[in-house]
């Protein structure tokens, strides 16, 4: 870009009056390390917009899992703890039990939440721990480069199910959100996606509700985001969003699985 052109953009276009979108202070300036087209970035953004809009940045503690979002604390501008693989719900229990007046959330992948961390997830929910579990379901182990996850669809090819997930060998995909929704201590379980603008708006609404319920002490909230993994699905971002629409969502239908009583 020519110098003059740059000057023009910065002095005449990038001015306060023209501002239509501002990154909230709850997100840092650090560049995301996620692959192009990955849903993690959008999920981070709407989650932190909600924290910003509710004005709870200084009373929120997040738990980053092991998985692609292991570095979430680089981006989320709130106090953060990194948890061992699968242990986010136990760590969050420790945080919330000693600071019941603070807002606490975990942000976990499907391997973290529904394989190695199943016990911690189910039992935290069964105790009705009053925090938000954000569950990013991309059907694979992203960080370790695309092995089968507990949520991998039947027939879906991954590096450890190279001939497609065979339910006779690998068992069936675990709909852990449905399991969690069946527990009495749980206030709110919803399944959303971020592959289209309309879904992004709905997912953001879900986060708003979850923090509201947490404030009211209603119990565990789980927001599942049916997401994508273009790199490990070996797809372009667009193809991956189409796969979400055509394959993932029919298996993991969107919508509320549980809402607080009287709602």
């Amino acid at each position: 870009m020519a110098e003059e052109e740059k000057d023009f953009i910065f002095s005449d276009i990038c001015v306060e009056e023209n501002l239509v979108y501002r990154k909230p202070d709850t997100l840092t300036d650090t560049e995301l390390h996620y692959c192009p087209g990955c849903g993690h970035g959008v999920a981070h953004k709407i989650l932190m917009e909600v924290v910003d809009e509710l004005g709870i940045q200084n009373e929120t503690i997040g738990v980053a899992p092991v998985g692609c979002s292991v570095f979430a604390y680089h981006y989320l501008n709130v106090d953060m703890q990194e948890a061992a693989h699968g242990r986010a719900c136990a760590v969050a229990t420790g945080i919330k039990r000693v600071q019941p007046d603070k807002f606490v959330f975990t942000y976990q992948g499907d391997g973290d939440l529904a394989a190695i961390g199943t016990a911690e997830t189910i039992h935290a929910a069964n105790r009705g721990e009053n925090f938000l579990i954000v569950f990013i379901n991309n059907g694979v182990y992203g960080m370790t480069s695309g092995q089968m996850a507990p949520t991998t669809l039947p027939g879906m090819v991954t590096t450890t199910s190279p001939f497609g997930r065979d339910t006779k060998i690998h068992g069936y995909p675990l709909k852990i959100a449905n399991l969690v929704a069946s527990l009495p201590g749980v206030a709110y379980v919803t399944r959303q996606s971020v592959h289209k603008p309309v879904n992004v708006r709905k997912a953001k609404k879900a986060f708003q509700k979850a923090f509201e319920y947490q404030k009211r002490g209603l119990g565990t909230c789980l927001v599942e985001i049916v997401s994508n993994c273009p790199s490990n699905w070996r797809m372009t971002p667009l193809e991956s969003n189409k796969f979400v629409e055509d394959k993932m969502i029919p298996f993991y239908p969107l919508g509320d699985l549980k809402v607080p009583e009287g709602k």
């Binding site: 136990a90 760590v91 420790g94 016990a119 911690e120």
Partner: peptide, 21 residues
């Protein structure tokens, strides 16, 4: 706070979370 955890794995990670507070 006194909490019976679902396992020692969970217990030590609850310790992590609250110690970090």
């Amino acid at each position: 706070v006194v909490l019976q955890a679902e396992s020692e794995v969970a217990a030590i990670n609850m310790i992590y979370g609250s110690a970090a507070c």
